[in-house]
């Protein structure tokens, strides 16, 4: 092992990161650990979900589990026609796209934008945007407390909580 290809270096880096991710929620109290990927910079979201909460779930939760929410919502929407908006990918795009100097939206999957800055850093390929729109097209329905409530019925959140809980047990 005299030489080390870029790929194996990235892999080694990921391996080093793994325990970090795994222990992220186990140490409470004391000095607050930096979240994984905190050193990356990407555009601030255009809006916050509510006064108390930035995203549709606490940021720590979203960093770790955003894909589970999106995946669950995907199956609910495609197969069962459930159209709640809270975990809809379109709403992610609505909030997290940034505008360039001319005031035009930059596609969310551009290299330095919200999704890809992290995903390319972590070498996790996503193909959401082969099919999904990468810029806001219609206004968000998650702006008002009232519509937020309408879009996040207890039932669905419970579903997801159960899903996450059962997955947590399985691990």
């Amino acid at each position: 092992m005299t030489q080390c290809s870029p790929i194996s270096r990235v892999l080694a880096l990921l391996l080093l990161l793994l325990p970090l991710v795994a222990t992220a929620d186990s140490d409470q109290g004391g000095e607050k650990e930096a979240l994984p990927f905190s050193d990356l910079t990407f555009p601030e979201p255009a809006r916050h979900y509510s006064a108390e909460q930035k995203c549709v779930q606490p940021v720590e939760e979203m960093r770790k589990n955003h894909m589970k929410y999106i995946l669950h919502q995907r199956d609910e929407t495609v197969h069962r026609g459930i159209r709640t908006r809270r975990y809809a990918l379109e709403e992610c795009v609505n909030c997290h796209t940034a505008k360039d100097d001319e005031g035009e939206y930059v596609p969310i999957n551009a290299p330095d934008q919200f999704c890809y800055s992290c995903h390319s850093y972590a070498s996790v390929k996503i193909d959401c945007f082969q099919c999904h729109a990468t810029k806001p097209v219609r206004p968000s329905t998650l702006n008002t407390p009232e519509s937020n409530a309408a879009n996040s019925t207890e039932k669905l959140s419970n579903d997801i909580r159960q899903l996450l809980a059962s997955e947590g047990q399985a691990q």
């Binding site: 795009v93 082969q130 099919c131 999904h132 729109a133 990468t134």
Partner: peptide, 16 residues
């Protein structure tokens, strides 16, 4: 082929 600027309510893309 690769598609761009799809409608959010009608996702569609290459290879499907």
């Amino acid at each position: 082929e690769d598609l761009h600027d799809q409608k959010p309510w009608a996702p569609r893309g290459k290879g499907t």
